[in-house]
């Protein structure tokens, strides 16, 4: 039996490299928001209640461009559609949790915490499969750290952003994709997984010009479909029949 709480800290510890990657985004968001006329309170409020980096950045751009509220809200919806994929992956592993924990899990869903969780959900992982409660504890460790990090960084950016001229040019924002490379690398030894990564990567370039991160969504779906097609012939006979359950 594990000591209670240990998985919470393990989730937080495993998320540290990704938090490093998220740090500059929070700072830059805070600085940009205040620079675009948002009050410090509104900047902090958006980070506290929306807690979605990409959507927050795009909203800033749309407000600055004079977009109407319905346009901004619809764009928020589209930018966040990838969370349906994250939810579909995580939710079946958390069906027994109390409703408030499911809601908090959903509220705290981010690219980073999902990436850390993906390593724990992978059947090929050397770790023994965790129970629902253990998985949830691990997730809350990761998500708490991400949430606190995002609040502190966006507030610091809002308050002190103008003291860090050119912080955006240090290239710190490259730390997030680099951390994600570390998450994806172990997947690449399996053919279907490598196909998912390659096809998604190629389509992400081809579809980059689509607005509101729709290119990201198209790329992810293309990668998932390609990997499914690659894997189909190797499924046991009747494998597709399972779909009728």
């Amino acid at each position: 039996m594990r000591t209670p709480g240990i998985l919470f800290w393990r989730g937080a510890r495993d998320s540290l490299p990704l938090v490093l990657g998220a740090l500059p985004f929070g700072l830059i968001f805070g600085a940009l928001a205040v620079g675009n006329g948002f009050s410090v309170a509104a900047t902090a409020g958006m980070s506290l209640f929306v807690f979605a980096g990409s959507a927050q950045f795009i909203a800033l751009g749309l407000v600055a461009a004079g977009a109407s509220l319905p346009v901004i809200l619809f764009t928020t919806l589209v930018v966040n559609l990838r969370h349906l994929l994250y939810g579909a992956t995580l939710a079946p592993r958390m069906t027994g949790l109390p409703e408030w924990k499911k809601a908090l899990t959903a509220f705290w869903l981010t690219d980073e915490s999902f990436a850390v969780m993906a390593l724990r959900l992978d059947d090929e992982s050397p770790d023994p499969r965790l129970s629902e409660a253990e998985l949830s504890e691990y997730y809350f460790g990761s998500a708490t750290l991400m949430y606190v990090d995002w609040q502190l960084c966006s507030l610091a950016g809002a308050l002190f952003g103008n003291f860090l001229p050119g912080a955006a040019s240090w290239g710190l924002d490259f730390a997030m994709p680099v951390a994600f490379i570390g998450i994806v690398a172990p997947y690449l030894k399996q053919l279907p997984m490598a196909t998912a990564a390659l096809v998604a990567g190629a389509v992400s370039i081809l579809a980059y010009a689509l607005p509101s991160k729709l290119g990201l969504l198209a790329a992810a779906l293309a990668g998932i479909i390609a990997a499914t097609l690659v894997e189909l012939p190797s499924l046991p006979k009747g494998g597709t029949e399972m779909g009728k359950e």
């Binding site: 994929l85 579909a88 279907p192 997984m193 390659l198 998604a200 992400s204 990201l216 779906l221 990668g223």
Partner: peptide, 8 residues
């Protein structure tokens, strides 16, 4: 396939 696809 969601994690490798979205992250890539």
């Amino acid at each position: 396939f969601v994690p490798p696809a979205v992250l890539s």
